[in-house]
């Protein structure tokens, strides 16, 4: 059967991919072993880096705070992006101008500068925001601008015939959006949006400059106090990497869910 031959070849391909990954991971581990790292110190600090315990001020810290910041910024960015994408697609010139102006401004300036303006410069005119809210606002506004473009292009990529067929069936407007347009746009939006969120996870380390005890901040301060830079930074990097892989798995599942009906293997 030709279809089985294809899946057999796919299986062999996957086996080799896993094997190569395993070899590369072993190589990396071997390289680390040559650095004579102080694993006892890593083990001692790991619960703090992961955020299994609360910070002295009673707030979450480490990787837990990183996840919290990313998740909150993600939700906010999504809301901002939806509104902006609607403005971008609007026939109202004011809405269109607002959306394009915002997107251009926040895509055209560095995230670090935006964080600093919100945290350090705004107090000069009397707007004082805490570290966490400054970080969330900066991340949400910056990523919202990128995400808006992703959402807009996804919505535009749904063929006009889909909407027309739904209109011809007398479906109400919200059913057309909810059941026809949005699911098809999501299929196209999820891969680039997933990449943006992984990148946001790492950019969340920028909030460390506002004294938030997230993963990168803790790694640096533990490293500084006992001069274990290699141990702490590698540990932090590996934790970031692990979190990113978690994100990618979620993205993969979502892609599969919204990819239903597209290029089904074995189909005609």
């Amino acid at each position: 059967m030709p279809t089985e031959a294809v899946s057999g070849a796919q299986r062999r391909f996957l086996h080799r991919v896993w094997l190569t990954w395993a070899v590369l991971a072993c190589g990396l581990a071997w390289g680390f072993s040559g650095l004579h790292l102080d694993f006892a110190y890593v083990g001692q600090k790991l619960p703090f880096l992961l955020g299994l315990t609360l910070a002295p001020d009673g707030f979450i810290q480490g990787a837990a705070l990183t996840i919290f910041v990313t998740a909150c910024a993600m939700v906010l960015a999504l809301l901002v992006a939806l509104v902006t994408a609607m403005g971008r697609l609007s026939h109202n010139p004011v809405a269109f101008a607002l959306a394009t102006f915002y997107a251009s401004l926040f895509r055209g300036t560095p995230l670090l500068v935006q964080v600093l303006i919100i945290y350090l410069a705004l107090p000069q005119i009397g707007i004082v925001l805490g570290g966490l809210s400054s970080g969330l606002i900066a991340l949400a506004l910056n990523y919202g601008a990128y995400l808006a473009e992703t959402i807009r292009s996804g919505m535009l990529a749904v063929p006009a015939g889909q909407r027309e067929a739904a209109l011809a069936l007398a479906l109400p407007r919200w059913v057309i959006t909810w059941k026809i347009t949005a699911p098809q746009a999501l299929r196209l939006i999820i891969p680039p949006a997933g990449a943006l969120f992984v990148s946001m996870l790492k950019d969340s380390s920028l909030v460390s400059i506002m004294g938030l005890w997230e993963l990168n901040f803790l790694a640096q301060s533990y490293a500084r106090s006992t001069y274990h830079y290699m141990e702490m930074l590698i540990a932090a990097a590996l934790i970031y990497w692990g979190l990113s892989i978690g994100f990618e798995l979620v993205q993969f599942r979502l892609e599969r869910r919204f990819g239903k009906g597209v290029a089904v293997p074995g189909g005609r």
Partner: peptide, 27 residues
């Protein structure tokens, strides 16, 4: 009024059955 298009315009993310039940359910 029912309409049939040149390019079919079936909803690709729904099964054949779901394509046919969507409008009766919501309309």
């Amino acid at each position: 009024v029912g309409m049939v298009f040149q390019a079919f315009n079936l909803f690709p993310h729904l099964t054949v059955l779901e394509n046919c039940t969507l409008a009766p359910l919501w309309v």
